[in-house]
Write a protein that binds this DNA or RNA. Structure first.
Lengths: 157, 157
DNA sequence: CTTGCTACTTAGAACCATTCCAATTCGTTG
DNA sequence: CAACGAATTGGAATGGTTCTAAGTAGCAAG
């Protein structure tokens, strides 16, 4: 299967099947709602929209469906770590690495030049006050980077 | 004053004064705790640590102090938007821009090459599954980028 | 077809981080 | 020292998310 997923309702049944999950009306409608209006809705907003089509759906189900879609890589949750805010007195430009195994957060040195390049992707109309760059993964065993490791590179979907 | 702040307890009184705020024992100890152990503690963790020195401090005060420090640019809150998670079906690599005025979130095109460069800053020991790049600011009036605008560039502290 | 299994949905309770509020205390200024 | 505003405090309230227990639905085997 290709990495590029079809961003259509049809792709859903496929992806779900790949993960051994069922295609249900609720999942289909939730996904449909996300595709229809791409304004990064919250779970609550999705809930409201879905209800017009599936009046008896529950908020819990919306949360369940959204999580399912995220796990199938059809949808991305935009929100850093769920959970408490963390505080950092490091004033130099840096990114953060969040270790999902341990829950620890590490500072990652960020070359100022790269920061400039990142800032440069913003169209003129956008005035940003700050940027956050957060990696998520595991830092566990310092894998000495096997020379030709074709491991999947982090994506920013 | 220089952009580079001293990351010492002494800098605190200075910065607070600059903002017309008082230097209090609570603020000093909270800041001291952050400087002492830089493991990105949560407000609760800070609370526990501070209590050993200031047994009567309240959690509300810890939150207040942390916010004060963030506003003085002495500390950075690591956590994307406080508030509900948002969902996005865009599977192509992109960054997000969060408009603080309207609360809206927009996708920002992210050149794959730049994504590679960002991924490249990770030391070998870190295995990232995903990266989030989030800008915060306002997209309001499409300012036509005044040619030589020396406006402060977004920082990633 | 029917029994049973497992996945899925549901409603509401529970949780947890954070914010709000009202009352008190502290510092500074007059 | 009097008075005012800033800061702190404890507890209640909020809001997003997760949990739990019970019900429903689809599928497989007999």
């Amino acid at each position: 299967m290709s990495i590029e997923a079809q961003t259509t309702p049809d792709a859903l049944a496929q992806r779900l099947a790949d993960s051994g999950l069922r295609s249900t009306p609720q999942r289909e409608v939730v996904y449909g709602v996300l595709l229809k209006k791409r304004d990064h809705p919250t779970a609550d907003e999705v809930f409201v929209r879905v209800k017009s089509e599936l009046p008896t759906i529950s908020l819990a189900t919306v949360y369940n469906c959204l999580e399912t879609l995220v796990q199938c890589d059809l949808v991305r949750a935009v929100n850093f770590e769920r959970g408490p805010t963390r505080y950092c007195p490091n004033l130099r430009p840096h990114a953060h690495f969040h270790d999902e195994q341990t829950g620890a957060t590490h500072d990652i040195e960020l070359p100022p030049m790269l920061l400039d390049q990142v800032n440069a992707i913003l169209p003129a109309a956008y005035a940003a006050k700050s940027v956050d760059i957060i990696f998520r993964g595991s830092a566990g065993s310092p894998r000495p980077t096997p020379a030709g490791d074709p491991g999947k590179a982090p994506s920013a979907n």
